[in-house]
């Protein structure tokens, strides 16, 4: 392989993505929808509300009643609700005088998206507390729906699910189709080398490459992002290797269908990436999907892999708990491999 550019992409992409999703994206907060609950208006509250409504990063959604808090958050109309205390002006005066006191307002955040919730909370805290921000207890923050912020690391299994499909499936399919396109595949096929050996030889480098990626991702996740990795390392690797094989089989299957590199690229990128991102539970939890989409997501292999990785990496589950995921992945791998090889043989005929 003298194709150093592909090599570089294959090796750097996971690192960049992990770091990107890990750090860069978490700091970006735009358009936080905020509503307020005001038991009794006074000058202090009016000032605080003004601060909120005039901030360019916040969309002020008006006043709601206490009863509506839950419904508003659940429906997703607002991301955060500020509840002012009924004796807000008295408490604030106390704060200004003594520099401490009881919490004068409550901040209730929708934390189903942990990344924006964390950043948004920090941001709102700053605005509301203003120059009194040296103290944290002025604003009492509640994270709803996800109190322990457990999903903070959810993107790592997601990225793993995506990267391996990308690298194995896309690069394998593209490299095989490239041989078809340049005609070298014909030359290889008329040679005494068995077609199966050709396929095998094409898969090995990408399998090796993906193993390197797996190591990099696991090391980054552990030491840079501080993910607990509480599960058994052996199970993590076993499940990942099965998933790698599955991706390779998928790449082979694509290569039997596609005639041009660009087609192979499009199939891998558009047809596979989209379902992985949208349906695998990487971004949107499977449980929250409409009933129509749930069975569709079940045929996305990444869903089972991501699920298994989440359990292993973050929750520290034992192998028994991911047995179902594992068996589904093995089954899918065998099915895909059989289909791909059959297709490949048919094309030769």
């Amino acid at each position: 392989m003298r194709d150093s550019r592909t090599m570089l992409i294959a090796l750097l992409m996971p690192v960049v993505q992990i770091l990107l999703f890990g750090f860069a994206i978490s700091t970006e907060v735009n358009n936080v929808n905020v509503a307020v609950v005001v038991p009794k208006w006074d000058e202090e509250i009016r000032q605080s509300v003004n601060k909120l409504s005039s901030n360019p990063y916040i969309t002020y959604k008006g006043v709601i009643t206490e009863h509506d808090i839950d419904q508003q958050l659940r429906s997703g109309k607002v991301d955060a609700i500020v509840v002012f205390a009924h004796d807000f002006d008295r408490l604030m005066a106390q704060w200004k005088q003594n520099g401490n006191g009881k919490a004068a307002m409550q901040l209730i955040m929708d934390a189903s998206n942990t990344i924006t919730a964390q950043a948004g909370a920090g941001y709102l805290n700053n605005i509301l507390a203003g120059d009194l921000m040296q103290s944290n207890s002025l604003v009492e923050t509640h994270m709803l729906f996800n109190p322990q912020m457990k999903s903070a690391f959810n993107f790592v299994p997601g990225i793993m699910g995506m990267i391996f499909i990308l690298i194995c499936a896309m690069l394998t399919s593209v490299s095989i189709v490239r041989e078809k396109e340049t005609g070298t595949m014909d030359v290889l096929l008329v040679s005494p080398v068995r077609p199966l050996s050709i396929i095998f030889a094409k898969m090995v480098p990408y399998f090796a490459l993906s193993c390197i990626n797996l190591t990099t991702i696991l090391l980054l996740a552990r030491f840079v992002l501080g993910i607990p990795m509480s599960g058994n390392l052996g199970s993590i690797i076993t499940v990942s290797l099965v998933y790698l094989l599955l991706s390779l089989a998928l790449g082979l299957l694509i290569s039997t269908v596609a005639k041009k590199q660009i087609v192979a690229l499009l199939i891998s990128a558009a047809v596979m990436l989209m379902p992985i991102v949208m349906l695998s539970g990487m971004m949107f939890p499977v449980e929250n999907m409409p009933d129509v989409l749930k069975p569709v997501s079940a045929i996305v292999p990444a869903r089972w892999y991501i699920d298994a990785m989440r359990k292993l990496l973050i929750q520290g589950a034992s192998f028994n708990l991911i047995l179902k995921d594992f068996l589904i992945l093995v089954g899918m791998t065998l099915a895909l491999l059989a289909l791909a090889l059959k297709n490949f043989k048919d094309k030769l005929e």
């Binding site: 392989m1 003298r2 194709d3 396109e181 340049t182 005609g183 070298t184 014909d186 030359v187 008329v190 040679s191 005494p192 068995r194």
Partner: peptide
């Protein structure tokens, strides 16, 4: 077919060597 392959040479209508070797 497999035995034939060992006794023939083939040059395809598309250029078919590896560009990056």
């Amino acid at each position: 077919g497999e035995k034939i392959k060992r006794h023939i040479g083939y040059m395809s209508q598309r250029f078919s060597l590896y560009d990056d070797l």
